[in-house]
């Protein structure tokens, strides 16, 4: 019995630093957001408890609903664009030909830059006057295709531009996952299929894709939760504009809380982000056995 007690005490000692830091800077702020969503506060003056009135305001706020819909739209669009491309690139890179590993050196280069760096780079590439894309289009006499990529009022254009930039930044990461997954599939599976003369597409549908099931799930979870929290890139590129066209939840929250100094109302956005995030992870866990996956992923 005393031995067990001693073990317990050492466990508490070893876990203490992590627990304290995580509770103070992770759990407490999360609960704090729930509390702050119930007060009116400009960050300096008096806090007044207002109950659910921020929430009522949120439900009536068309800009808030727009942000929610937009966030889901971004989630779906980025998934639909990135998943097939990442799969293709990953499978391509897993091939044994030597030149493919050299391609890999190039393909993963975007991973070396922060979202801020990627945002700045693309804002200059897409600059309406001096940017690479428009100058190039002018030079090859396709001037009618040139556009104000990040400021246009043409519906959907800015959103699609953002989705394209997001894909450029993150497809390398997801193809890295798919490459690793594809490399784990036993060659024997393919050899048997090849003896039977199976076509490339059948091989993909009946061997590769089912074997990559867990990778698809991991990549999907990361894409969905990732796009729920897109902030850096959008903040740098459009700051939610033009006309709120890219005003996703995270950006709307930041501007509401820190630029309009509506700490309480901004916290409603924060809680909504957290709720969507938690629902997403519960759904993914339930329907896909992500937990099983977690126990399967052994470190690197």
């Amino acid at each position: 019995m005393p031995r067990k007690k001693r073990t317990q005490r050492i466990a508490i000692l070893l876990l203490a630093p992590s627990l304290i830091l995580f509770i103070v800077f992770g759990i407490v702020p999360m609960l704090g957001a729930v509390y702050l969503s119930l007060v009116n506060w400009n960050g300096i003056g008096h806090q007044t408890f207002v109950g659910l009135s921020n929430w009522v305001q949120f439900v009536k706020d068309s800009s808030a609903w727009h942000s929610i819909l937009l966030t889901f739209e971004v989630m779906i669009l980025t998934w639909v664009i990135q998943t097939p491309l990442s799969l293709m690139v990953g499978i391509y890179l897993a091939g044994k030909q030597r030149h493919r590993s050299w391609m890999g050196v190039i393909y993963f280069l975007p991973l070396l830059f922060s979202s801020v760096a990627v945002g700045l780079l693309w804002s200059y590439i897409l600059d309406p006057n001096f940017g690479l894309v428009n100058t190039l289009l002018n030079a090859i006499h396709l001037k009618f295709l040139a556009a104000n990529w990040l400021g246009s009022t043409r519906p959907g254009l800015v959103l699609w531009t953002l989705v394209a930039i997001v894909s450029w930044q993150y497809i390398p990461f997801h193809s890295l996952l798919y490459q690793a997954g594809r490399k784990q599939i036993a060659d024997s599976l393919y050899e048997a299929a090849r003896i039977d003369g199976v076509t490339f597409w059948k091989e993909f549908w009946f061997i590769t894709l089912p074997q990559l099931k867990y990778t698809v799930v991991t990549s999907t979870v990361l894409m969905l939760t990732g796009s729920l929290t897109f902030f850096d890139l959008i903040y740098i590129l459009t700051d939610g504009g033009p006309n709120e066209e890219t005003n996703v939840l995270a950006v709307n929250m930041y501007n509401t809380a820190f630029n309009k100094s509506m700490i309480g109302y901004g916290s409603v956005f924060a809680v909504v982000i957290a709720i969507i995030g938690i629902i997403l992870s519960i759904v993914m866990t339930k329907f896909t056995g992500f937990r099983k996956l977690e126990s399967q992923s052994e470190g690197v």
Binding site: S18, G26, P29, M30, G32, L36, T225, I263, G277
Partner: peptide, 26 residues
């Protein structure tokens, strides 16, 4: 240890963005 582990696993779902406002005050 097992309670602590559960807490950390649950913590995986907390997005940084959702905690940033109170974090600033804290």
């Amino acid at each position: 240890s097992s309670r602590a582990f559960t807490l950390f696993l649950a913590g995986l779902a907390i997005p940084i963005q959702a905690a940033i406002i109170p974090l600033y005050i804290l």
